Simulated assay, not measured.
Amino acid sequence: MITPAFAAPLAPVTVAKQLDNPRQLGLTTDGTLIIAESGTGGDDCAVVDGDEVCVGTTAAVSVVRRPSKAENVLAERVVTGLLSESGPGGFGATGNDGASARTLDRIFVAKDVDVPDGITGLPEEQEGKLLRAAAGRPPAVVADIRAFETANDPDGQGVESNPYAVLDLGDRVLVADAAGNDILAVDDRGRISVFAVLPHVTGGACDSRPNQGGSFCDPVPTSLTLSRDGDIIVGGLGSLVPGAGRVWELDRRTGAIQQTWTGFTGVTGAAQDQAGNLYVSELFGGANRTGQLVFVPKNGARVVLSVPAPAGVVVDQPGNVYVAVNSMSPGTGTGTPGSDGQVWRLTKRSF
Results as ranks from 00 to 15, higher is better:
residue 6 F to L: 14
residue 15 V to Y: 02
residue 16 A to P: 00
residue 19 L to K: 10
residue 22 P to N: 08
residue 39 G to C: 06
residue 40 T to F: 01
residue 49 D to T: 03
residue 50 G to D: 11
residue 50 G to S: 08
residue 57 T to G: 06
residue 67 P to V: 12
residue 69 K to Q: 14
residue 69 K to P: 00
residue 74 L to N: 11
residue 86 S to C: 12
residue 89 G to R: 07
residue 93 A to R: 04
residue 106 R to P: 01
residue 108 F to T: 00
residue 122 L to Y: 09
residue 124 E to W: 02
residue 138 P to D: 15
residue 144 D to W: 05
residue 152 N to P: 00
residue 156 G to D: 00
residue 158 G to C: 07
residue 164 Y to T: 10
residue 164 Y to W: 12
residue 170 G to M: 00
residue 173 V to Y: 07
residue 181 N to H: 12
residue 189 R to E: 15
residue 192 I to V: 15
residue 198 L to S: 03
residue 204 G to T: 06
residue 215 S to G: 04
residue 229 D to E: 11
residue 241 V to A: 06
residue 244 A to H: 05
residue 248 W to G: 08
residue 258 Q to Y: 04
residue 263 G to I: 00
residue 270 A to T: 11
residue 274 Q to D: 14
residue 278 L to M: 15
residue 290 T to Q: 08
residue 290 T to Y: 01
residue 291 G to H: 04
residue 297 P to S: 11
residue 298 K to H: 14
residue 307 V to E: 13
residue 307 V to I: 14
residue 311 A to D: 15
residue 315 V to H: 13
residue 319 G to T: 03
residue 320 N to C: 09
residue 330 P to A: 02
residue 333 G to C: 03
residue 339 S to F: 08
residue 339 S to K: 12
residue 342 Q to L: 05
residue 348 K to I: 09
residue 349 R to Y: 11
